[in-house]
Design a protein around this nucleic acid. Structure first.
Length: 255
DNA sequence: AACTTGCGCAACCGCCAGTCG
DNA sequence: GCGACTGGCGGTTGCGCAAGT
């Protein structure tokens, strides 16, 4: 037990990574693949601890990472997910495959947290209920509060319970209850399992397959390969569809 | 131009859970 | 069952830079 001793060893380099170190790490991982971080420092000759190597890879060097310039779409999604999940950055990051948990965490702490608090304080001053803290326009979102399992209980902190997620998905699979401008064709959606272990969540559908829904013109089958989460997003995460739907419904592009 | 302040972000720290011998 | 080890996560720190004075 106890924490890892790897970073306490004498001779371990700390601080910013140099381009040379990055090249060494990337070339090693390209050859051997990520994993077995313990052996990376010894095999590469990097004077870094395994943790540092892993973090550098996952937060910076990993292919498919999108950096900076969060779009309103992404902002809205982060705010929404944070209100539902709390500070489960890894879980939130799984909804945005191109973003790292560290990036999202930083962005929340430096930008969004203040924005949300400001919006909430304005909403409270006006005596109005604030839709999950980032859009108090009840006219625009009047249909949302009756659709999504979201409520405000006197504070900006939204309980990060499984009930919220389950309810959200349950309602999400019932298009008939929601008013929308686009024709909704939700078919054969068979979510049957939601796990919440150690902050990670996954949604499993029958045979790891489901038909897409709202944002697409025509339903199509998508096979979900969990391994694709590692190296970015050439496949659409099942939850990105939820994301798209949520944003269409709850956030719009006014954020 | 020099100094101060605030911000953004990469990296570190400390803890936890899972695995293995 | 126990302890060592590892990977993963969230919180925090500290450096570099830009903006303000």
């Amino acid at each position: 037990m106890g924490r890892s001793q790897c970073c306490d060893k004498v001779g371990i380099k700390k601080g910013p990574w140099t381009p040379e170190e990055d090249i060494i790490l990337v070339s090693y991982i390209q050859k051997h693949g990520p994993g077995n971080w313990r052996s990376v420092p010894t095999k590469t000759g990097l004077m870094r601890c395994s943790k540092s190597c892993r973090l550098r890879w996952t937060n910076y060097l990993r292919p498919g990472i999108k950096r900076g310039n969060f779009t309103p779409h992404e902002e809205g999604l982060i705010v929404h997910l944070q209100s539902m999940l709390g500070n489960k950055w890894a879980a939130i990051a799984s909804y945005l495959p191109q973003r790292t948990d560290n990036d999202i965490k930083n962005y929340w702490n430096t930008h969004l947290k203040k924005k949300v608090e400001k919006k909430n304080s304005v909403g409270n001053m006006l005596g109005a209920s604030v839709f999950i803290g980032y859009d108090s326009d009840q006219t625009r979102n009047s249909h949302v509060s009756s659709t999504l399992p979201i409520s405000i209980h006197g504070s900006s902190t939204y309980a990060s319970s499984m009930e919220n997620i389950s309810g959200l998905l349950e309602r999400w699979t019932r298009p008939s209850q929601k008013k929308t401008d686009h024709p909704v064709q939700i078919q054969d959606l068979k979510y049957h399992s939601i796990k919440a272990d150690g902050g990670s969540r996954e949604i499993l559908s029958d045979q790891q397959e489901f038909r897409t829904l709202v944002p697409f013109e025509e339903p199509r089958s998508v096979a979900w390969d969990e391994s694709s989460t590692l190296c970015g997003a050439h496949q659409l995460h099942p939850l990105s569809m939820l994301e798209n739907w949520l944003l269409d419904e709850a956030v719009g592009m006014s954020w």
